[in-house]
Amino acid sequence: MTHRAGIAGFGLVVAFLATSSSPVLAELASLGDDALSDVSGQGGIYLSGDVSINEMGGPVENYHFGRCDDATRKCGARLAWRLKETGGWMVLDDIRGNFSFEGLTLRVRHVDSGFGGDGELFNRDVLELGLPNTVRFNDVHFKIAASNTARPTDPGFLQTDIFTVEMRGEVVMEGNLLVFPTGNP
């Protein structure tokens, strides 16, 4: 079967991704200002703002879902999927939180230099997602669970919460994410 080949139709290169860990690909160094000056083109966008999920709750209000100020209800979003036709459901439950940033950039860029000489050989266009230096996470929260029904309101609903993830604070995200196609389209 060649199903996987279909999914691998594009490549992702993280030019320099540093959170609290080491750079992912050390040979792909960040471009200096000289190299950046060779990048022709205006346009592109610099985005500032924030994204939130179920900040105050979602649109469903029943005996299971409700507003976030109601301790007897879940106010987060729920994502369920199943891998077998007659099997149970994996669940990302009670998803909520928000994050904010300044400096997420998006543009199309031609790479033909830099990257320790690899850029000259590369010589093509990429979609560049410039990561903001700092992303502030606020009360990001979700649970991994397993359930016997897709909906928590279905008859006989049972669910086992496996673990919960909570995240807050600042995360340093530097560098660019370069997206380009590889392989046979």
């Binding site: 500032s48 994204v51 199943r82 459901w89 928000n98 909906r151 928590p152």
Partner: peptide, 15 residues
């Protein structure tokens, strides 16, 4: 995947 259900989403983006 034999079915995906997403429930109770409220996503805000201020950009």
């Amino acid at each position: 995947i034999y079915g995906i259900k997403m429930q109770n989403f409220d996503i805000k983006a201020n950009l």
